[in-house]
């Protein structure tokens, strides 16, 4: 069952750090959001494989939006 990685804050996607197939550990940054001049990483909630990154650089995401899927 893939797990949704959700933005914990509203912001603009500053950087996408992962791509489908990447292995990540718990706490690894998946993407970096920019909000109010701060860079805020959205981290993997657990170890796994990234199956999809839905966030695109420059796009605004709202708090609670899914930014990636983890398996």
């Amino acid at each position: 069952m893939p797990e949704e990685v959700k933005a914990h804050i509203t912001g603009v996607v500053f950087q996408v750090l992962t791509k489908p197939g990447d292995q990540v550990r718990a706490g690894d940054p998946i993407i970096v959001l920019e909000s109010m001049k701060m860079e805020i990483p959205v981290e993997a909630p657990r170890a796994g494989t990234v199956t999809e990154v839905t966030a695109k650089e420059g796009e605004t995401v709202q708090e609670g939006d899914t930014v990636a899927l983890l398996e």
């Binding site: 914990h8 804050i9 509203t10 912001g11 909000s35 109010m36 701060m38 805020i40």
Partner: peptide, 13 residues
Amino acid sequence: YAEDPDRNFMPSP
């Protein structure tokens, strides 16, 4: 600032 001091000063738009 529009920040949440209880969440490590995270932005609060």
